[in-house]
Design a protein around this nucleic acid. Structure first.
Lengths: 350, 350
DNA sequence: CTGAAAGCGCTTACAG
DNA sequence: CTGAAAGCGCTTACAG
């Protein structure tokens, strides 16, 4: 666009200078672009003389050269981007998952998130466009089967939090089942015999697993969860509070003494509304959740919760993906991380 | 890598087939890749015969061709990716901002998020790598001056929620100042004369603005906010609750009758702890926040809050960015969106 | 309306 | 150790 005979402005203007290319670096250093590429990518060991190496480094520094991601990707056939596809971004749990992913990816890969509206997944068309960016790998959080079917990614994929979904793909899951059973056992030990269960309303696999395991273990320990005491709301404090406000009178009559929730967020809603009703917790009503969000330590009363290893989930998934990207075989294609029940004041009667 | 004489498998295998290129489509349709490019990019009007157009479309369909983002970007000099850089992902407010951005971007641009740990911004090196992906444009949420200084993006940039920061860049802000003044006026009208202020602890510009405007308007209306009643915590329910628990006795002695918070999240903490202490809200203590998160409608009592137009913030910023990307001039480089005070039970004494 | 060809910036066998 | 050259997949003047 600019005329070619305009005087070359080296790095006089700090603002939006002409893009610095490997060719410019090469000329500046008096070497070929091949040498520049080797040095810039840290592949120079034993292949570039110390003198040239130093020259190239100096030129890179002076000109402020950064390897162009697009050119590099086209040439190598793949970018160094890892895309994390996730349906639920506004979740403190998810923020910690991301932190884990970033830690494992380090500086070698660029993490980008593709998110849609709450609970949604990208459409097939969106996914294809994502893949056309040639990501080095894909991380897919809490996917549904439909999404996985139309995914058919050509490269490495690792699922996170996808119990029972996409069985042929590598995945990192959490033992929510074990956590659910621990919780049921704990409530049984505290003497509860009739319990309510507040579920999530999305069809995410992990919720079904939490519920089924809880109900199963509860039944095995002589706890009843009457059909009228099984409800579901969106993952929202207010929605859970409203549901509890509407249900509590009947539940009380029915002899309910504890509420187990599919997420801590639901539990916060129960706590809030129980306080409004003047219920003493845990004496009149015990409350427990899943996730062990940070706030569960400071809520009043502190919330008993099944601790899910969010950071680890992200970290391990990213580690697996790296192995795949780097062509290594996975020792175990599907990992399941431990969970643990954290008992706090909201259920501790003793 | 594979030997060239391997039999071409057309679309027999659904799983990870060979990447379909424009050249393959061209051959299939009996045209040149130039024609394929024109059709695939919707630039065929008046430049491709109806017959060829149809042939190409058929071939695209049959082969499942998708324009390669990398090749396309390299050729055009820019990708169709918009990168949203944000320091605070786990925030319900931010989820709505993203929804607005997505709505405005539509299918023309691919939105990718670059996030770091809470409150952090990408390092200069990370940013350079981001830019090497040649994004069509950059959206930067709640930036600090340092980040903007080292940014120096070559392409279009629009800031969101960056009051008083990066004055030379286009931005979309919200009139938090007006909202803060409305809130102070409302509390004055309700008869409060001594108020506490709970601030955020990050140095984000919007918080400083909220606080200064509130304090200024409060002073103008004869309200005192004693130094001992100005505190700051992280944006966390538990942290705010703990702060209130520690401060309330002194505040009460000091005659404090209301607490204004920099975010609704802070306010939730105050509400929680006030309930624990058995305070009647709003009679003994009025509480208000900023953001008007969804939960503020259903909290008990419902929370008075300064409503910030999150969707609009995202939408308008993305619209501005699109104009910039498409080479149009901005009518107004810096927009300020209206805010409004939503009065609810937590402050309505009347 | 159409296609051959140049070029985007890089990486990587390959020959020396 | 080094560089010339091919090639990644696409877009876009350009000539016809």
């Amino acid at each position: 666009m600019e005329s070619a005979d305009a005087p070359a402005t080296p790095h006089a203007r700090a603002v939006a200078p002409r893009r610095v290319t490997a060719a410019m670096v090469a000329e500046h250093a008096g070497v070929s672009t091949a040498t520049v590429s080797l040095v810039a990518n840290g592949k120079s060991a034993g292949r570039v003389s110390a003198a040239n190496e130093e020259r190239v480094r100096a030129a890179i520094r002076e000109l402020g050269y950064v390897v162009d991601g697009i050119g590099s990707s086209l040439s190598r056939g793949v970018s160094s981007t890892v895309i994390l596809v996730a349906p639920d971004i506004s979740n403190p749990f998810f923020a910690r998952v991301i932190a884990g992913v970033r830690a494992a990816l380090g500086n070698d890969y660029q993490l980008l998130l593709s998110v849609t509206d709450a609970g949604q997944f990208p459409s097939a068309a969106e996914t294809r466009r994502l893949l056309s960016l040639r990501p080095a790998g894909l991380l897919v959080d809490a996917p549904d089967e439909t999404f996985l079917e139309e995914l058919s990614a050509p490269g490495p994929v690792v699922l996170l939090d996808a119990p029972g979904v996409g069985d042929r793909l590598p995945a990192v899951n959490m033992d929510v089942e074990g956590g659910a059973r621990d919780l049921a056992a704990h409530l049984a030990a505290q003497g509860h015999r009739r319990i309510a269960y507040v579920d999530g309303i999305t069809g995410t696999a992990t919720f079904a697993l939490r519920r089924e395991a809880f109900l199963d273990e509860a039944a095995a320990r002589g706890i009843e969860v009457p059909p009228a005491a099984r409800v579901a709301t969106t993952i929202d404090v207010g929605a859970a509070a409203a549901e509890f406000a509407a249900s509590w009178a009947a539940w009380r009559r029915d002899g309910i003494t504890a509420v187990a929730c599919a997420t801590d967020t639901h539990a916060y809603g129960i706590l809030q509304e129980a306080r409004v009703k003047g219920l003493s917790i845990p004496c009149e009503l015990a409350v427990a959740g899943f996730d062990d969000l940070p706030y569960s330590q400071t809520s009043n009363p502190a919330l008993t919760s099944v601790r899910l290893p969010a950071d680890d989930l992200g970290r391990r998934a990213a580690e697996q993906l790296r192995r795949l990207i780097e062509g290594q075989a996975l020792e175990e294609a599907r990992l399941t991380l431990q969970t643990s029940l954290v008992v706090r004041a909201s259920t501790r009667r003793r």
